[in-house]
Amino acid sequence: MLSCDELERYHRQIMLFGEAGQEKLKSARVVIAGAGGLGCPVATYLAVAGVGHLRIIDHDTVDRSNLNRQILHWDMDTGRAKTESAGKKLQAINPDIEIEEARVRINEETAPGLVRDTDAIVDAMDNYPTRYLLNHLACKFGIPLFHGAIRGFDGQVTTIIPGRTACLSCIFPKAPPKEIFPVIGVTAGIIGLIQANEVIKYLLGTGELLENRLLIWDGLHSILEEINVERDQSCIECSQLQSDPMEKVK
């Protein structure tokens, strides 16, 4: 049940998808893996949209070199845990939602407990080993994974529905080399907001998701292109999953 304050706060979007849609957002639990360049815009826009429970995971502290893109962290936050810095801002932006700060490193031991009870996993990481771990758990638990990655003025984003779409290992069987990547904040903003938009559509059950479509953003030329991707029948992560999740229901 939405409160009077919530009805007022979300009035303009309730015009779009009704109180029933807002209730869906309110009852949703979303985990955001990473409170960095991508995690900050994703978390901000899911918070203002009224997603009821956001779990923000990051083990790191705020460094001054983060501030060109990690918009929830301000100069005064340097040295503070990213989860605390982000959590305080998000709670101030929207006091009606629950923010859970998980200051922990994502690894094989911690990750299952962090994602298992959620409706959506947002990949806001900066490395492929952790992304592959999130993808593994998304496939194992049947939770959608919203992938985004950036470098410089370039970005990529797709939505993975286990059993229905190509998973991260199908699309990128081999990780690119690790690097200290150059980046401009707007790239993180653009890709992060597409991820947030995908999460909101998924939770509402509306629109068309980026299923089997890898969106590629070229900020230098202002071009958004799409590559079709498909499931790898020999994928170690998802080839055993049923092709149509609805078959489980029948």
Partner: peptide
């Protein structure tokens, strides 16, 4: 994809696309 991708023969009029995934976040 696969080991033989390097040896796949191109034909007149083909478009070869090359994309390096990005990793940052």
């Amino acid at each position: 994809s696969g080991r033989d991708r390097e040896s796949m023969v191109l034909h007149d009029g083909d478009e070869l696309a090359i994309f390096p995934p990005v990793a940052g976040g």
